[in-house]
Amino acid sequence: MRTRRGAPIWLIGPTRFAGMPRSQARIGIAMFVLLLAACLTALGSPGPRPSAGSGSAPNVAAADAAPPGQTDLLLYQTIVDGVRSGSPYYSVAAETQRMGHYPLKPFFAIRLPTLAVVQAALSPVLANLLLLLLCVGTILAWVHRLRPETTGLVPLGIAGLLVVAGLYVNLDPGFAVFHEVWAGPLIALSLAVRRPGHWLPAVAFGLSAMLIRETALLYVAIMAGFAWTEGERRETLGWLAAIAIFAVVLAFHAYAVALVTGPLDRVSQGWSGLEGFGFYVKLATISSGLDLVPQWLASLLLGTSLFGWIAWRDPTATRALAVFAAYAALISLLARSDNFYWALITTPLLLVGIVFAVDGLRDLIAAARDTRRITVTRVIR
């Protein structure tokens, strides 16, 4: 027997939990509690706060520490300034990383030149304005995307504010040199505009994200996988074409890095932080508007948001969940405590799930408490 769905609160359509059998709903509540408990493990996880003076050089051995005052923010800003002054990108990047005791090997220890070259070609004011326009475009795209899904202006306005909260760090001009600050909104924008049969803009935004930050490849691969499993062959080819273009660019990048590095240059110690899921939650909370509330509350809100994405019955939600899970696994296994900005690639959308969680929790609790019985009456004539 299945339960009835109550009247819509914030979502027009039913959630995944609407009409769920009571036994399954009770299991769902238990899983939700476990999700919240997993998020609370962030209370014991490391993670620097995202400020200009708190970073540390990535992949630097303890015995060969970076110079005092050296941060990732300073590194990327110095590279942009060098390119703006007329120096070739790869020469500037290699020399700056040597001076900061950063590794230059393997080749992806040096970022792709896309962001630095674009920022160097613009004045700082124009570069910050471009980032602001990207963030505003992301907010408007998601408001437009959710308009037909919500019951009125209140949930729609809250959804827009939650996107703003997710872009908390992205809207700070001081972090504009971080590659994830640009790649994250591009991925969010790609998800917002993708529709069946209308995928070209989504692919273009995904490719742009990859050309700025290599880890965006994970998002594009996920989107290609979904397109293939759903039988969207042309869309699948579009995502694969984006990956092929990125592979060619990456090959040229590897060659260019080889020309400016030598046998004495430092080699990365690798990415094997193994910090766990709580670490991802910690980084996601301090890299979003949740940084303004206590960590315990931020962890619970993030867990509720993830639950909301599970509740929303829509193909976009399924894709978003896969993206969140993939990057959560990547950060949990590979990121170190100085890599807080890795989470910025998922934070623009993460908190929107709170809107979906309202109806989802109501439906789940209602299903778990359902006490209806079927009474069979025999009629004797």
Rank of each mutant, 00 (worst) to 15 (best):
W312L: 13
P263W: 10
E230C: 04
G206Y: 04
T151Y: 08
P106N: 11
C39G: 15
L133D: 02
W296K: 03
M20Y: 03
V83S: 11
I245F: 13
L218M: 14
L40D: 08
I331T: 00
L200W: 12
Y219E: 04
A141P: 04
G278P: 07
L274D: 02
A242T: 11
Y168R: 09
V323K: 01
H253G: 04
A183D: 09
H101G: 02
L122N: 11
V125Y: 10
V281Q: 10
R195I: 00
D291H: 06
E275S: 07
E180I: 07
L350P: 03
S332V: 05
P103E: 03
P88L: 03
H179W: 05
V220M: 09
T96V: 13
M31P: 02
S51E: 15
L297S: 08
G13A: 15
I243D: 09
L301R: 02
I79C: 01
A328I: 01
A326W: 09
I9F: 11
L126I: 14
L43N: 06
P155V: 09
F226W: 12
L306N: 03
H253I: 07
I212T: 08
A368D: 05
Q70R: 12
A121F: 13
V60L: 03
R147C: 08
F279P: 01
A25I: 01
L237E: 13
G137P: 13
R233V: 11
A66S: 13
T371Y: 05
P173N: 00
G100M: 08
R145K: 13
S45N: 09
V92H: 00
L115G: 07
A329E: 01
S45K: 03
G308H: 00
L200F: 11
I27G: 04
T71S: 05
I374W: 04
T316H: 09
V355E: 04
R313N: 15
R378M: 10
P58N: 01
L186T: 06
V169F: 00
L11V: 08
I158S: 06
L264F: 12
T285F: 00
P106K: 08
L283G: 00
P124G: 07
S272G: 14
P185M: 05
R233K: 13
L132A: 06
S91G: 14
G137F: 12
R194V: 12
L75E: 13
S51T: 15
T138H: 09
D172Q: 14
G100I: 00
E149T: 03
S272V: 02
G238T: 09
V203I: 14
F277I: 02
V60E: 02
L122H: 09
T318V: 12
L73Q: 13
A141G: 06
L344Y: 06
S332G: 15
P155T: 06
I29T: 02
V118I: 15
R313I: 04
I354F: 00
I158C: 09
N59H: 10
R195V: 06
A298I: 04
G276I: 03
L73A: 11
V355T: 04
T377S: 11
R266D: 07
V163H: 08
P68K: 05
T304C: 15
P67Y: 07
V125N: 05
W342E: 01
A258R: 14
I331G: 00
V379H: 15
L350Y: 11
I27A: 12
W142R: 13
A159R: 11
L74P: 00
L321D: 05
L218N: 08
V248D: 03
T71V: 10
R313W: 07
